[in-house]
Design a protein around this nucleic acid. Structure first.
Lengths: 153, 153
DNA sequence: ACTATATAGGACCGATCAAGTCGCATATTC
DNA sequence: GAATATGCGACTTGATCGGTCCTATATAGT
């Protein structure tokens, strides 16, 4: 059904939240979880994962927590999703896979691989900052309302 | 993980196969299943579904089977996937859903809904014919190699 | 030193869902 | 009437997602 996992959702929400609070040196998993009403333990593990992949910086102990490792503009939705859910492919057999189980049969893959690339491209072009400051960019007058990306399939 | 179900894969493959054999009046589920090494019973149910949604025309009895209900150019990958997997949304809570469980919390959804629309747009722009005759379009010399679609997010 | 607060991470569980199978009814052709 | 098809519902199995629990470790404040 072409759906993002809830974990990835949570991860994106958390990063957005961190991006919206640049003044605080660190926010705990519980802080973020409470803000959104997400299970704290679950979010904790997600943030740990994002830390391991280098998107977050963590600090244990009191007043500890997490902070963005880079500028919000430099973190793409793609990286977040990839960190949490692992590599995704729209088809079971992609050109990434060595060989298709349905050997030469599945000739569908080539065109769909391009769809896959497109999706990846879109997600790569969306940064955490884009998610966070949506209101601003919406409110900005005379701005090209739609157009973060243009791409060719 | 943003993945298509195998059923949708099978469905696309089957339609492609039908598109490649326009001379035969009808092909049985078994014919197609054997051609690709797919479980016949499973494919049967998929084709039945596609028949119910109007993409295929069926004929029972000996020498019966399935045939495309429209020209291969007039059937989009989107329709096929939609028929088989049902409506898909990249996020758990989309603007399609009445209300988000995480009430006003999930502010992620709006930007991602646009990603969702993009994906849908790409899939809508790909027809069964595009899947079937890939070799031809690839072989065609001096043709704009990449470019079925251009879209703005 | 002690305690409260954090991250880090492993084990586990339940619900959901995809994938596939089985069985039976019905239609159609030979 | 037999062989071949579709049509459709029920069921099984395996994977995976979402979530909880428990323990170890780090750190800041009193």
């Amino acid at each position: 059904m072409l759906k993002l996992t809830k974990k990835a959702d949570y991860g994106l929400m958390a990063l957005k939240y961190l991006a919206e609070h640049p003044e605080t040196p660190a926010l705990s998993a519980k802080d973020v979880a409470d803000a959104y009403g997400i299970p704290a333990q679950l979010l904790a593990k997600i943030l740990q994962r994002l830390t391991k992949t280098g998107l977050l910086r963590s600090h244990a102990g009191m007043n500890g927590g997490y902070a963005l490792a880079r500028d919000a503009r430099q973190i793409s939705a793609y990286e977040v999703i990839l960190s949490i859910d692992g590599p995704f492919f729209i088809t079971s057999c992609t050109r990434g896979a060595k060989s298709c189980d349905l050997t030469p049969s599945c000739t569908i893959k080539e065109p769909l691989a391009r769809v896959n690339d497109t999706i990846a491209g879109v997600l790569k072009s969306i940064s955490i900052h884009d998610l966070a400051d949506r209101e601003h960019s919406d409110a900005a007058p005379g701005r090209d309302r739609q157009g973060l990306v243009t791409l060719t399939v």
